[in-house]
């Protein structure tokens, strides 16, 4: 995001590592653009802190607050020394008038968010855990347009992330992934998963999905 540097004078805020920027369930009426550093989006689920996302320079967060005040659905925590632009709902209109390019960026961000959210919902709606896990891998493969899906592909994802996407417990995901590993369908590493034939997964998932409502 390349916004005017004057904007930082007016809307800039800074946070130190581990500072909470906003907290799950607190009312929200501000949204943020990251100018510098990384921000972790977390949620306490079943008494464990789960990382939903790690955001970097150019990312926006808290954007649901643009239109109405609603409790935050997750917490945002600074990972580094973070510089942000903070905008309040009240001056959103004025901000848009003065920065139409920001408006355009927001449209793009929302479009992507909607697609990602819908895609995740499609995963969550699948009935069988192993199909959900496969679909997480399909989704990740869709996110990188440069992957050659005819070949083995490498997905930069951890088990925990797969569990988050699938809305499952990590132990269950672990069982399924180790099983797929044993079958030679995937190769498991700490920070990545190599999928031998993602087309295979795609076919199975779509056959399941088609039959859900047919």
């Amino acid at each position: 995001m390349f916004l005017d540097s004057q904007l930082f004078d007016k809307f800039g805020v800074e946070y130190s590592p581990n500072d909470i920027i906003f907290c799950e369930y607190e009312p929200g009426n501000e949204f943020y653009f990251i100018q510098n550093g990384r921000v972790k989006i977390v949620k306490i689920i079943n008494n464990t802190e789960k990382t939903l996302d790690i955001l970097e320079v150019g990312d926006v967060f808290g954007e649901m607050a643009i239109l109405e005040e609603q409790p935050r659905s997750a917490s945002a925590i600074a990972m580094d020394h973070v510089k942000l632009l903070r905008f309040r709902r009240e001056n959103f209109d004025a901000l848009l008038q003065g920065n139409p390019q920001l408006a355009y960026k927001l449209l793009i961000i929302f479009s992507k968010r909607i697609y990602d959210a819908k895609r995740r919902l499609m995963i969550l709606l699948l009935e069988e855990p192993q199909i959900k896990v496969m679909d997480v891998m399909c989704m990740l493969s869709e996110q990188d347009p440069h992957l050659d899906l005819q070949e083995a592909i490498t997905l930069r994802v951890t088990m925990q992330e797969v569990a988050n996407w699938a809305g499952m417990q990590i132990v269950d995901v672990q069982k399924i992934l180790s099983h797929l590993n044993q079958l030679g369908k995937i190769e498991l590493f700490n920070d990545r998963i190599v999928v031998k034939n993602i087309r295979d997964f795609q076919r199975m998932v779509s056959s399941r999905r088609k039959n859900m409502f047919s």
């Binding site: 239109l67 139409p100 408006a103 355009y104 927001l106 909607i114």
Partner: peptide
Amino acid sequence: LVLQNVNVVRKMLRIFSNQLR
């Protein structure tokens, strides 16, 4: 077009935000 007409964007953002919700 959008840069010339921020109202259009505002309206779309509202629709998008509702969808997201």
